[in-house]
């Protein structure tokens, strides 16, 4: 039975496998009333599997999932839950207002249709068949459907993937408004920008596990790694792994001689300064922001080593600027 004091989401030591693939590996997560949580991770990290367990679409192999204290597989536990169809998943022949009314028909106290349309700037499209909507309009309607039942918990799986900047901001504002009304929101994304715009707390998943679970600011520090690329003579590569703040070194032979090494570093400034101090004979230095994918990889490997050096203390000045060949591409 659902109770009002139980947290919206309680995931306790949940494991879920698909054949040989372990999508979730002993994951525990608690989300309290009024939180807005970003679930961040590369594709295949287990985000969607986690949401499908919360929506009652799948069962865990081990562990328990609770929605307001009830089993999400029981439809009675889902009266306070809002989810969204995938972008391509609207019935083509139904009109926008009909789809909204259909979903509203499942709830005892739904949001009035006019309010749903207003929140997502869809008023002018009420009589349009969904098959005739643009990608952005479909996406807005899909996210709008998640709020039709006035849910206390909203699950959004990559809500703005493939949208232009303006449409993205309309959606984000609508979600922030709804959260401000007192709802709990969980949003998945593999865009850092989306998580930054929406979330207060960020849970990073990778390889089916929770790698980090912290405030937005802390997680931004964790994933703000840099890629430092440079060429060194053959044999000098071993010294690179020992540099301060370096998580990962990959080397490929450079056709012009020597080895082209790529370092993933929490703090490029400290790293470059150490390169100079230790007189490593490098040339062709490049520094740029790492992609989120690379940041996750480094986070995953540092989590495996049991170290949290990713959050190393930042250096005061930019050492990269002292090297004329350095270019830094801001994230």
């Amino acid at each position: 039975m659902t109770t009002d004091t139980a947290p919206p989401v309680l995931v306790d030591h949940v494991t879920r496998r698909f054949g040989d693939v372990t999508a979730l590996d002993d994951v525990s997560l608690r989300v309290d009333h009024g939180e807005i949580v970003g679930l961040l991770g590369p594709n295949g990290a287990g985000k969607t599997t986690l949401l499908s367990l919360l929506a009652g679409l799948r069962t865990p192999d081990a562990g328990t999932v609770r929605l307001f204290g009830g089993d999400p597989r029981d439809p009675a536990s889902r009266t306070s839950l809002g989810t969204t169809p995938q972008e391509t998943g609207l019935p083509d022949t139904l009109k926008v207002r009909e789809v909204v009314d259909f979903v509203a028909g499942h709830f005892a106290d739904p949001m009035p249709r006019s309010e749903v349309l207003a929140r997502f700037a869809l008023e002018d499209l009420a009589d349009r068949q969904t098959g005739a909507l643009s990608g952005g309009q479909k996406r807005r309607l899909a996210v709008g459907l998640s709020l039709v039942g006035r849910p206390r918990l909203v699950l959004l799986d990559e809500p703005t993937t493939g949208l232009d900047v303006e449409a993205r901001h309309v959606l984000w504002q609508a979600l922030r408004d709804y959260h401000a009304d007192g709802a709990t929101v969980i949003v998945t994304s593999h865009y850092l920008e989306e998580i930054e715009a929406l979330a207060q707390r960020v849970v990073v998943v990778g390889g089916g596990r929770v790698i980090a679970d912290d405030t937005l600011a802390r997680v931004l520090d964790l994933v703000s790694v840099r890629r430092v690329t440079l060429t060194v003579p053959v044999g000098a590569g071993a010294a690179l792994a020992g540099l301060p703040g370096v998580h990962d070194v990959t080397e490929v032979p450079d056709p012009r001689g020597g080895v082209r090494a790529t370092l993933v570093a929490a703090d490029a400034d400290v790293c470059v300064r150490a390169l100079v101090e230790r007189a490593v004979p490098f040339h062709d230095l490049e520094v740029r922001g790492a992609s989120l994918e690379e940041a996750f990889l480094s986070l995953t490997s540092s989590a495996e080593h049991g170290a949290s050096s990713a959050a190393a203390t930042p250096a005061p000045a930019s050492a990269a600027a002292t090297d004329p060949t350095a270019t830094e591409v801001a994230r």
Partner: peptide, 24 residues
């Protein structure tokens, strides 16, 4: 816009399922 309905958090008991016949 958000003032047109009562804030979500003010609701207390979880709402019941709609009746079998109305859903059918």
């Amino acid at each position: 816009m958000s003032t047109t309905t009562a804030p979500v958090a003010s609701r207390t008991a979880p709402p019941a399922l709609r009746s079998w016949a109305s859903l059918a």
